[in-house]
Amino acid sequence: QTRYKSEYKLSVVGNRTIPLADGAFRWAELVTERSGGRINVKVYPGSQLVGGDQTRELVAMRQGVIDFAVFSTINISPQIREMNLFSLPFLLQDSRGFDAIIKGPIGAELFRTLESRDVQPVAWGENGFREISNSKKAIRTPDDLRGMKIRFAAGAIFAEIFTALGANPVQMSFADLQPALSTGAVDGQENPVNLFLGFRMDTLAQRHLTIWNYVADAGIFLLTKPVLASFTPEDQALVRDCAQQAAQEQIAASRKGLGANGDRSSLDELARRNVTVTILSDAEKQAFARATRSVYDKYAQTVGTDLVRRAEAAVTAARA
């Protein structure tokens, strides 16, 4: 066994007010506390270890700049092609479809893909379904998006989705998103509702929000293989257990207040902040799904057609 470091660096995008980052803080707290400080994990929020550019976290882990991380799948999809599965438009549809992926054999398969890249994933979490907001008008049909400048997080698939919908996609890191919204450099963005609330995007001129559940990102709790290997077997189990617990809390927080089990607190909060919320019916979603079908088919090949067919079957079975 090698000696433990005095501090382990955990990187996460965003900050405590959003469920994804909160899960990272919980993981760090649990590990530090239960190990009696033997494994001292410090969270660096806002992807600050990589200058705010969350798409560089995976490379930085492999270079030893970051020890632990909580990723959103969207941010590693430019490097791990299979992760684009979560970004196929209108594949997952709701939490039942989402759970069918992360809790089933497909989730295990995706973890094995990650393991082949020097990192060790230890738990699936959730960032949430991504809903679109903008400063101009309510979006109900693809036509409403026409000409709008929409920021996306990462992945050429999003550039193609929004181009197919007639919008102007612009890629930028989360750290740049706030200045871009506040300067009016972009009209809109897409992120989970609880992130929208946590970052008070209503104060950044985002007045309209459309619930369309077009894609969802999972959270991934992981650490580098050398760091995990440096721990005793008991501590390895401890790190995994803490990740599982933090991930469970993260998933619950991501889904909170969106209507499940009669809890509409997040939607009510949006109304209180004068955000117009448009909830699309299944038929209205179909119009968007039709418009982006070609992108879906193209990226199904990037992800692996076989994997996508099995994912489709799993989602259908879970929602039946």
């Binding site: 270890l49 200058g51 705010g52 550019d53 560089r56 612009v170 930028m172 740049d176």
Partner: peptide, 14 residues
Amino acid sequence: ALPTNIWTGIAKYP
């Protein structure tokens, strides 16, 4: 962190 931050410090859209 040196090359990473040099790049991300200015490769910023705003």
